[in-house]
Computed example of a mutant assay.
Amino acid sequence: MLLHARRQARWIALAAVVALLAGTGLYLQLRTPTASGVLADTGAAHAVVEGNRIVDARSGRDFVPRGVNWSSFEYACAQGWGMSALDNVVAGSPATAEADAIRAWGANTVRLPLNQDCWLGTRGAPVSDQYEERTVEGYRADVHRFVTALNRAGLVVVLDLHSRKRIGQPEFGNLAMPDSESIAFWTSVATAYRDNPSVMFDAFNEPYSRYSAGGDRFLFDLTWQCWRDGGCQAPVEDDQSATLGQVTYPVQGFAAVVSTIRDTGAAQPILLGGLDYANDLSHWLEFAPDDDQLVAAFHSYDFKACGDPDCWDDVLGPIAETVPLLTSELGARHPEDGYVGRYLDWADEHGVGALFWVWADHPADPMALVSDESGRPTPYGRQARSWLTDHLPR
């Protein structure tokens, strides 16, 4: 935690100089260390937790993350057709073009779901096709290029441990909780981005319990104690694979993940999602690890239990009064039927940010925000874009 405090103090001191120069009419473009160690200009906020707010350390002003989830790095590299959807963007610089398109919607934050196996090179990932060999180094370089482009467009990036390659399958799936390889993942990712104050970390996408095939009993009942401290045994199969729960792995709790990130010297805010696919935050405050840079991450969907104003008021409200609360995924089975709008109204009343699921050209997905790589919005995308632009500084 000493390195954490020193690094945060360094960022805040630098921000104070910037604010002083800005107040005298001078302008200083911050130059931020990137994953490669090269300094790069960035207009993105330097996110720091202060009490129940996230602030931009450059100015001390509130920073409410609003934006999108950019989906592709979590599955393209495991399916064998590319590192990400950027492979299909051919006009100009793909990363820059995509970043500029998202920024043009009024977003200030992008969440990037990553694949644990593609980053580490485990389970045969990233998968090569008959035309191109793909490597761990190539995957990490593609992620870095996009993070850099997003930062330069003024967007904070949330790096999310989202999935792993499915064993023997072309698809991807989610484990119930972090495993030992997740610790290796975060050691590597946090080391790579510890000097970039415009990056935040999402420790694990969606913790969950596993039911039997008949849905009548738990095969794995994830408790809040295990959520924090680990040690319980979860099925080795992901949530897209059937399981009898007979082969398990020891869960790594969020206290271990947070400690791993901090041990690298990374001081950035860390998002922690709750139980039931990050929809249950009922005991988040009670069990959150001891760290002053944590953000409670909530996934809001109309098909989950915490999907009405009573739950938002009773469960989310007290959290938002204590620590920053971020809706790191927001969507619905039928996004235009009113749920998304109702939730956004509640979020605005409580100063809570939201990241829409999902910026991807998936014609069969009602939650797809765009209909092509250039960022042409779907009807749902127009709703998201309107909300984002409404919150641009005037």
Results as ranks from 00 to 15, higher is better:
residue 226 C to Y: 05
residue 336 E to K: 03
residue 40 A to E: 04
residue 313 D to M: 04
residue 209 S to F: 12
residue 274 G to V: 15
residue 377 P to Q: 04
residue 373 E to V: 12
residue 28 L to Q: 10
residue 45 A to K: 01
residue 283 H to Y: 15
residue 327 T to C: 15
residue 144 H to Y: 06
residue 9 A to Y: 10
residue 277 Y to V: 02
residue 288 A to Q: 15
residue 125 A to G: 15
residue 246 Q to D: 08
residue 236 V to P: 09
residue 212 S to C: 09
residue 16 A to Y: 12
residue 231 G to V: 11
residue 88 N to M: 05
residue 55 V to E: 06
residue 238 D to K: 00
residue 391 H to F: 04
residue 394 R to L: 00
residue 183 I to C: 13
residue 109 T to H: 12
residue 337 D to Q: 10
residue 145 R to H: 01
residue 321 E to Q: 15
residue 31 R to W: 11
residue 59 S to W: 11
residue 345 D to G: 08
residue 390 D to L: 08
residue 168 G to S: 01
residue 105 W to T: 05
residue 222 L to T: 13
residue 333 R to N: 13
residue 171 E to H: 09
residue 251 V to G: 12
residue 32 T to A: 04
residue 256 A to M: 01
residue 185 F to N: 10
residue 124 G to I: 03
residue 324 P to T: 12
residue 320 A to F: 09
residue 373 E to Q: 14
residue 38 V to W: 01
residue 90 V to D: 03
residue 16 A to C: 10
residue 116 Q to D: 03
residue 126 P to H: 08
residue 377 P to C: 03
residue 79 Q to Y: 05
residue 251 V to Q: 12
residue 26 L to T: 05
residue 282 S to G: 07
residue 341 G to S: 15
residue 297 A to I: 08
residue 43 G to W: 09
residue 193 Y to R: 02
residue 233 Q to C: 00
residue 153 A to G: 14
residue 248 T to W: 06
residue 38 V to Y: 02
residue 178 P to M: 07
residue 58 R to T: 05
residue 126 P to V: 01
residue 284 W to R: 02
residue 299 H to V: 01
residue 106 G to H: 01
residue 147 V to T: 14
residue 87 D to P: 05
residue 15 A to Y: 08
residue 192 A to F: 02
residue 381 G to V: 03
residue 183 I to M: 14
residue 212 S to D: 13
residue 1 M to E: 12
residue 394 R to W: 02
residue 361 D to F: 12
residue 309 P to Q: 04
residue 360 A to L: 09
residue 142 D to F: 01
residue 61 R to L: 09
residue 72 S to E: 11
residue 191 T to I: 02
residue 23 G to L: 10
residue 340 V to Y: 15
residue 35 A to Y: 10
residue 281 L to T: 03
residue 36 S to M: 07
residue 143 V to L: 03
residue 220 F to G: 02
residue 312 W to A: 03
residue 116 Q to Y: 00
residue 332 A to H: 10
residue 164 R to M: 04
residue 284 W to E: 07
residue 37 G to A: 08
residue 51 G to E: 11
residue 127 V to I: 07
